[in-house]
Amino acid sequence: MLYLNIIVAGLLTGAVYGLMALGLSVIFGVVRIVNFAHGEMMVLAMYGACLANAGLGLDPLLAVPLVTLTLFLLGYALQRGLINRYIARPDHEQFLLLLAVATMITASLLMGFGPDARNVQLGYAYDSYQIGAMLLDKVRLLAAAGAVLGAAALSGFFRFTRTGKSIRACADNQFGAQVVGLDVKRLYAVTFGLGAACVGAAGCLMLLLVDVQPYIATDYTLLAFIIVILGGLGSMPGALFGGILVGVSEALSGFLVEPSFKSAFSFGLLILVLLVRPQGLLGRA
């Protein structure tokens, strides 16, 4: 039963990981840019939720709309003002550009908040539900529910709205999209904004579960890479699936082997999948 509890806890955390990675996957799938500043944006969102909590007294869950909107606007502006100019550039130039952005985000957070870890105090932090012998943490359940809702909302946007359909058209055939008169540059900006919005929501939800400090950003970037490659870069269900897989693998290896070894298992999984099925578990060949 202990195993079941651990697996379920990993699964719920994994859903939040999945939402974060979904942002990376969407950005890569459409804009074809690997967002090396992904973890930094995540940490930025977590600090945003901290700030909303300290300044406005908002619960991180209620801060989701505000932080998500802010991150969307930031992402939109970043793509419109900067990244759009590097679309057709070689990989290493794009890498350097996003590395510069990442460095500046972390440095700004360091200047604004200092290097110490922060968190939010929640009245329900230690509440849990019991179903049979299974214990469910309330925060974890809420975070996972939020993540699934967020992913569903994004999926609905891509399926049913005009802009969403246009973005999918761009992803399938950029040239064709241009020919039929779509404003590709604007759609790229919207896409990057949406990717950032995923991270915004995921950041608020993550703050329910862990502390935040500026230097954890790189870990989140790597985590997002692992997840999207496991699931399949560019695949939306893949990102969620990969997130849950990594969440469970972390929880189990942390418990069975040693907590410091948990990311070794994630990297091991990544290496295995890249070699055996490089398009990812749910990706199209």
Binding site: T103, M104, L109
Partner: peptide, 22 residues
Amino acid sequence: EISGLKQWFYGAALLAIVALQP
């Protein structure tokens, strides 16, 4: 005596170089 200032300027310099001499 501001922590983070170094990284900030470092990032800005990288940005300037990739913008001006990619």
